[in-house]
């Protein structure tokens, strides 16, 4: 399981963002029954995928697409996800790392959702990266799963500590979080921060492109 930013599901969906969150959490858990429950029967779906532009209609058809893409993946890891309101619409994004019979893939999809008055999604506009082949990660699995977090140029005055804490608390104890950062202060700060929070700094790599990769094992 990789790093995820999936928000917690609200108890009762109210508004586009809450509905989107329910849909996102169900989708990333591959709970297609729950995901279908927030789709309108007459939903309109438009998809821009590598083969081209496609459309489909109906909640069942829409859920069929997601199911066809993701049901057979094993493992199925959510690397990052988010659901946000965009002035009356909702934006959902997720990046998945998954294994299919012929190898590992990374896939990212961006969805713009219309939500009706009955808290059901009436339209999905989907943009898909396609299944992007990536290197075999079995070696990672031998020593605990590896999660990734790109801290960008966040520094100690920009909420880095909170973000780092949030990210590492989302992975199981013993798993590894590889944090990449380009902020000069964060390069000195992250190892200290990790140790202060009770984690173990496993390695620090400097690839030479201005970034730093710090591998941290969650300790508690």
């Amino acid at each position: 399981m990789l790093t995820t930013q999936t928000p917690e599901s609200p108890d009762t969906a109210q508004g586009p963002c809450d509905v989107a969150t329910v849909f996102l959490n169900a989708l990333t858990a591959r709970d297609f029954t729950t995901a279908r429950s927030v789709l309108a029967d007459d939903l309109a779906m438009r998809m821009l995928v590598p083969p081209g532009f496609m459309t489909d209609e109906g909640g069942d058809a829409a859920i069929g697409w997601f199911s066809s893409w993701f049901t057979d993946a094993d493992p199925f890891q959510v690397e990052a996800s988010s659901a946000e309101a965009v002035e009356g619409r909702a934006a959902v994004t997720y990046r998945l790392r998954l294994h299919r019979p012929n190898g590992w893939y990374l896939i990212e999809q961006h969805l713009m959702l219309d939500v009706g008055g009955d808290d059901r999604i009436t339209a999905i506009d989907l943009l898909c990266s396609g299944f992007r082949s990536i290197a075999d990660v079995e070696s990672d699995a031998q020593s605990g799963l590896v999660h990734h977090y790109d801290a960008g140029d966040l520094g100690c005055a920009d909420g880095l500590a909170g973000q780092f804490r949030q990210q590492i608390q989302r992975i199981p104890i013993g798993d590894l979080l590889v944090v990449s950062t380009s902020d000069p202060a964060a390069k000195e700060d992250l190892p200290s921060m990790a140790r202060l929070m009770g984690h173990v700094v496993v390695s620090i790599e400097v690839p030479g492109d201005g970034r730093l990769f710090i591998t941290v094992e969650r300790g508690k």
């Binding site: 100690c156 005055a157 902020d183 921060m193």
Partner: peptide, 24 residues
């Protein structure tokens, strides 16, 4: 680091012996 960033100071500007660090 929190003082260097808004002043536009990056690693390229540093002299021998200095390092940008954060609060942690």
């Amino acid at each position: 680091g929190a003082c260097a960033k808004p002043r536009g100071i990056t690693e390229e500007h540093l002299v021998k012996g200095s390092t940008i660090v954060g609060a942690a």
